[in-house]
Design a protein around this nucleic acid. Structure first.
Length: 883
RNA sequence: GGGCGGUUAACUCAGUUGGUAGAGUGUCAUCUCGACAAGGUGAAAGUCGUAGGUUCAAGUCCUAUACCGCCCACCA
């Protein structure tokens, strides 16, 4: 009697304690170890000031499962954690904070503002890490990284300079996406397009020195202030005579040329387009082709500037209203139509993006994208699920240069200096005091910072010490798998791939495991504004981290969204409870002196062999599933083995031995119970680390933590095919007898002998030797096996089995009407099966073309069903006589 | 305009080379039997969106189509 577990499963009583235990003993740490193969995962760094949501819980659970599994398999498993400075997001939070204190960014100045930001970071920077610990993440905290750490910043600077030196970074006036609220440029990836119902305005422009007019259609009338031309398609007969002439820009009274460019589609609108090179990406290109120059009419806050004449000072949408009003008043507005179009919004603050010409820094993408594309085509990187490969390819094939400069302060400042005397641009690793060209001391550093994703793109190697040639980098890089949401393929995955190929000469990871979204129980996206977010910490508090983890990896497949509802977590908590109680059972029936002994194969009983054989299959299947990242299958397989095979059958079968007189048999049962339980905990540990470690600490033998234990291996000596079949036959018979008793409404307490009739000697032997199973599990008083059913036609319940019949003499407890109904149902079922099998076997095509194995199986079935049918019919006749 | 995903039991979802449809929850019946009522035992429940096709055999492969959802895109 070794039982020393609490009576009920209470995750709160040990989860935090165990995390401390693992962490303080350094079990999460990974070091260069040439004896072992490395396994590396880089945690996608959450925003430093963020807090844990279900998305984090999902992908960190997956990473933890993989890491724990590989660690147990004997790999030197490194899971490197960290956080991202999240420039735009953090900066806006800090701006809000100081605003509440009556301060502004400009008022504070760069230095003071950054002090505030650091303070904010230190205040909230540990929140998410502590929350992650609640989940049980086994990452190496001694390597915790932050994108603004000195060494990571050094990597950023180095990459910038290298790209600049290779001419892959340039500065120029380009149309970029400008957020008037964040007051910074953002990249294409950071723009979210949203369909909206708007209008299209038809505006008439008079032609110079003529009575003719030309009507254009526009969705953004305010930009007309910056018009530098009108364009028509060169093939458009309607406008051929106007090309080369000038139009008068209404309200502004400025002459603009009418040009012909094939970009204009004749079918859309009126076939004539106003060209505003400074405020539209397409118009910008047309402007370049025709040397139209620039005319910027808006400032950084989205207000009309001096170039807008009398509209100067108006906010862009106020200006729109005013302009429409004026156009109407002066008769230029011909028509307004409803129009649906996709409007770009800032990914961060949802403000409508303003395409703007601006001097920014860009990464030239063409030569970087090419090898990234090849890496996929060569199979150097794999997507799980595969379909996301297409998304990757599509983005890379249509990629445009990456705008990397941000008009923000929180981030990596560009290592770029300008000489105020000669105008030289100097890109330098070191702080410089003199202009390299004119030796002037009048230098100023570029005030911009880099896109956050510029630094996270280097995460897989910057965290390992690059650009230094460190042993860590040599050993742990490239990493094995990246686990992240499909929504950041563009932001992050692609940029890591090309950055790594460029700097390291190889891909940063082999596999990319993409998770879906965790939605609420109604299938809605969890969001702050809807207030429907489910807090992982609350779930952990209610059901424990293990139940949450299990819920997140089962019942869904990679890359697909899942709905989250508490009932599922509850079911998994119940599963944990089941294991907990099974353990209690094993421990309370385990004699101390048996605990450390091993069993030998020749002393095993049938059910021992059966469970060991089943365990073996489970080990094989789980390994197979995990190798293919099928975590859900693996988890389900372990769940079924524990609940159905170990608890419902093995434990029940073994009870008669534990409570019996045969000391030797009892001992073997105890040893097998413990042996299997240990493997169960090993298998389940990556999925449910807390409960398994807690149980492990109470099991005798194996000293040491489960987290470091060996992963179970398939043992060919524990495969017993014949025994498996025998036990399955017994199980099947027991189920049929139970079913019959329940349908006849006979309480389990009403026991009876079970008389088996069979002409098959192997079945006879099997049933005789399995008497205790029937006694324990099918309410049998005793078991009798006969070869003839003489004298059994009377007051019995008859259960038809494969190659046998079972009779339960329950006499007056039997309601023959019910017995008849039961038999009729059985008959119907068999008729259906027989019909199916027979027609299949009569099908010429099937018999001539199907594999022999399948045909033989069908033939066997047919024979079996026929035999059973005969018995059922015979029995029906007998019952009729009795009624 | 392109691309992708979903449509399977009342609900939420699995379904790994095509070979008699599975789980959890819920429902019904039953059981205080020496681990567990967060449990045991058993039951009912599916035209696998629709229409074609390939095949001896299709939830699974192909072609259309409907509905729901997502992503990408410079028709002003």
């Amino acid at each position: 009697m070794l039982e020393n577990l609490n009576k009920t499963y209470d995750p709160k009583s040990f989860e935090d304690r165990l995390y401390e235990y693992w962490n303080e003993n350094g079990y999460f740490k990974a070091n260069v170890n040439k004896e072992k193969k490395p396994f590396t995962i880089m945690m996608p760094p959450p925003n430093v000031t963020g807090s844990l949501h279900m998305g984090h819980a999902l992908n960190n659970t997956i990473q933890d499962i993989l890491t724990r599994w590989k660690r147990m398999e004997g790999y030197e498993a490194l899971w490197l954690p960290g956080t991202d400075h999240a420039s735009i997001s953090t900066e806006s939070k800090v701006v809000e904070k100081i605003k509440a204190e009556g301060k502004t960014k400009e008022g504070l100045g760069r230095e003071k503002f950054l002090e505030e930001a650091w303070e904010w970071t230190h205040l909230y920077g540990n929140t998410i890490k502590n929350q992650l610990k609640k989940l049980g993440v086994s990452c190496d905290w001694s390597r915790d990284s932050f994108t603004l750490d000195d060494n990571l910043s050094k990597a950023v600077e180095e990459v910038f300079i290298r790209l600049y030196e290779k001419d892959l970074i340039y500065r120029g006036d380009r149309i970029i996406n400008w957020c008037p609220s964040c007051e910074t440029a953002i990249s294409d990836a950071e723009v979210e397009h949203e369909d909206s119902n708007s209008f299209i305005w038809y505006i008439e422009y008079p032609i110079k020195d003529s009575d003719e007019k030309i009507t254009i259609a526009t969705t953004r009338p305010e930009t007309m202030l910056g018009d530098l031309a009108i364009a028509v398609n060169p093939d458009d007969e309607r406008y051929k005579s106007l090309v080369g002439k000038y139009a008068i820009l209404p309200l502004i009274n400025k002459e603009i040329p009418i040009i012909a460019d094939s970009y204009v589609e004749m079918e859309f609108g009126t076939g004539a387009v106003k060209i505003t090179p400074s405020h539209d990406p397409n118009d910008f290109e047309v402007g370049e082709r025709f040397n139209l120059g620039q005319n910027i009419i808006m400032n950084e806050k989205g207000f009309i500037n001096a170039n807008g004449g009398k509209y100067e000072g108006l906010e862009r949408f106020v200006a729109r209203e005013k302009i429409i009003e004026d156009l109407k008043k002066e008769g230029y507005l011909k028509e307004i139509k409803e129009h649906e179009n996709a409007i770009g919004h800032c990914e961060r603050c949802s403000t409508i993006i303003e395409p703007l010409i601006s001097k920014q820094w860009f990464v030239k993408m063409e030569s970087l994208a090419k090898p990234a594309l090849e890496a996929y085509k060569n199979g150097d990187i794999n997507f799980i699920p595969e379909r996301f490969g297409k998304v990757y390819v599509n983005w890379l094939e249509n990629i445009r240069d990456w705008c990397i400069s941000r008009q923000l302060w929180w981030g990596h400042r560009l290592p770029v200096y300008y000489c105020e005397s000669c105008g030289e641009t100097i890109v330098s690793r070191d702080e410089i005091t003199h202009c390299t060209k004119c030796n002037s001391e009048k230098l100023r550093q570029d005030t911009d910072t880099l896109d956050t994703w510029f630094s996270s793109a280097l995460w897989p190697f910057s965290t390992l010490g690059w650009p230094e040639k460190t042993p860590d980098l040599d050993y742990f890089f490239p990493t094995d798998v990246l686990v992240t949401g499909y929504d950041i393929i563009f932001f992050w995955v692609i940029r890591m791939v090309f950055s790594s190929i460029e700097q390291m000469g190889e891909v940063p990871f082999k596999d990319i495991f993409l998770t879906g979204l965790v939605r609420d129980s109604e299938g809605r996206k969890m969001s702050k504004s809807l207030g429907n977010g489910i807090d992982p910490l609350e779930i952990i508090d209610l059901y424990g981290a293990d139940a949450l983890r299990f819920t997140l990896v089962t019942g869904n497949s990679p890359g697909n969204d899942m709905r989250f509802y508490n009932e599922r977590v509850e079911a998994n908590r119940n599963f944990a409870n089941k294991l907990w109680n099974a353990t209690r059972f094993v421990l309370m029936n385990l004699d101390e002196d048996v605990a450390t002994k091993e069993f030998s194969i020749d002393e095993l009983q049938e059910e021992d062999k059966w469970i060991l054989s089943k365990l073996n299959e489970t080990i094989k299947d789980v390994k197979h599933n995990l190798d293919k990242y099928e975590l859900g299958f693996a988890a389900q397989r372990i769940y079924d083995f524990i609940w159905e095979e170990y608890c419902d059958w093995y434990i029940e079968m073994v009870k008669s031995r534990l409570y019996g007189e045969d000391e030797r048999s009892k001992e073997v049962a105890q040893k097998v119970l413990l042996f299997v339980l240990k493997d169960i905990n090993r298998l389940l540990h990556p999925f449910m680390p807390f409960i398994t470690e807690e149980i492990w600490s109470h099991l005798p033998g194996d000293k040491g933590a489960l987290i470091l234990a060996k992963w179970p291996k398939y043992r060919s000596e524990y495969s017993f095919e014949t025994t498996e079949k025998d036990i399955e036959y017994i199980k099947d018979s027991i189920k049929k007898i139970r079913n019959a008793r329940l349908e006849m409404e006979i309480a389990p307490s009403k026991k009876s002998p079970i008389i088996f009739v069979t002409k098959d000697s192997s079945i006879e032997e099997l049933i005789s030797s399995g008497e205790r199973y029937f006694k324990n599990l099918a309410s049998a008083e005793n078991v009798i096996v006969k070869s003839s059913k003489e004298g059994l036609d009377g007051e019995n319940i008859a259960v038809v089995l494969d190659k046998a019949e079972a009779f339960l003499p329950l006499k007056d407890l039997i309601d023959f009407k019910k017995e008849m109904e039961r038999l009729e149902k059985e008959k119907e079922k068999l008729e259906g099966e027989l019909k199916r099998v027979t027609s299949k076997l009569l099908n010429e095509g099937f018999v001539s073309k199907a594999p022999k194995k399948i045909i033989d199986e069908e033939k066997d079935k047919k024979q079996k069903y026929e035999e059973m049918m005969d018995k059922v019919l015979e029995r029906i006749d007998n019952v009729k006589k009795n009624m």
